[in-house]
Amino acid sequence: MSERRGHLAEMAKNFDNPEIKFLFSEGRERHFKMGEHLITEGQATDYFYDLLSGTVALARNGRDGRRQILSFMGARQFLGAASTPGYPNLATALTDVKAICYPRAALERALATTPGLASEFRVVLTRILESSHDHIYTIGQRSAVERVASFLLYLRSNQARFAVEGPREKSELIDLPMTRLDIADFLGLTIETVSRAFSSLKKMEAIGFTDSHSCTILNIQRIRDLGGREDFTAHRGSN
């Protein structure tokens, strides 16, 4: 790559050694069409992705065919960090996706020889763990309407933190690139229950729909009350 792009490049901009140079020389931009898999379950963990644009669903499928979506990922997020020889999860493009693909071995060498970058990278992985804890709490302790309200807070926070151009202020306009089935598989609900929950929030005048792929939060405090939290961890306060 002649030009360093992506979140990893932002993190590494103040570091310069042979391993860093080699890592970015090995990076390759890849494009994935909607429905295409970035990684599959059991695939060797040879590559690591820095997402540039689009939305990816990270999921795990049971032997009985049931699917649990673990997270929705987008620009400025990392995909493919694993401690196992094979990926335990499936990552599917929900929209057209652009990403930079790096060899895992080159990334590990760069992290091993650049303590500052390794420290920043650990912070990113810690945030992923914190988000997983939030998700477990949401699906374990909340009603259907409360889960959907918490989900909207999750999207609102992520859209601000991981905007393509970098962290920005939160917006009341929430993009919904995923289907109702995707949301159901994320929240541990049925598609019918998700649709009823959105309808209930609309009747409460807590949200309004502009189209099938976006909604507007009309009463943020109502959404927070239902979600059982002020907001998900954010980079700037809780507005």
Results as ranks from 00 to 15, higher is better:
Phe22Trp: 11
Ser171Asp: 15
Leu117Gly: 11
Gly80Arg: 02
Leu189Arg: 06
Leu226Gly: 10
Arg147Ala: 07
Leu173His: 13
Ser2Leu: 12
Arg224His: 05
Thr216Phe: 09
Ser71Met: 09
Ser212Ala: 13
Ala206Thr: 08
Asn14Gly: 07
Glu192Cys: 04
Thr113Phe: 13
Leu153Asp: 09
Thr210Glu: 15
Ala163Leu: 08
Ile191Asp: 10
Asp182Ser: 09
Glu120Ala: 06
Ala105Ser: 15
Thr84Cys: 02
Glu26Val: 01
Arg122Lys: 12
Arg196His: 10
Thr138Arg: 15
Thr138Gln: 04
Leu152Thr: 05
Ile100Ser: 12
Asp134Leu: 02
Glu41Met: 03
Ala206Ile: 04
Gly65Tyr: 01
Leu181Val: 15
Gly116Cys: 08
Ser150Tyr: 06
Glu19Thr: 04
Gln68Phe: 04
Glu108Asn: 12
Asn89Tyr: 07
Thr92His: 00
Lys21Ala: 03
Pro115Asp: 09
Tyr137Val: 11
Asn17Met: 00
Ala112Arg: 11
His135Gln: 10
Ser119Met: 04
Leu23Thr: 03
Leu201Gln: 06
Ala59Lys: 12
Phe186His: 07
Asn17Gln: 03
Phe15Leu: 12
Gly42Ala: 04
Val56Tyr: 07
Leu79Met: 00
His7Thr: 04
Leu153His: 11
Asp211Phe: 05
Phe151Tyr: 15
Arg30Phe: 01
Ala184Gln: 09
Gly86Met: 01
Gly6Glu: 00
Ile100Thr: 14
Gln141Asp: 15
Ile223Ala: 10
Ala110Ile: 08
Asp16Trp: 09
Asp225Arg: 08
Arg76Ile: 00
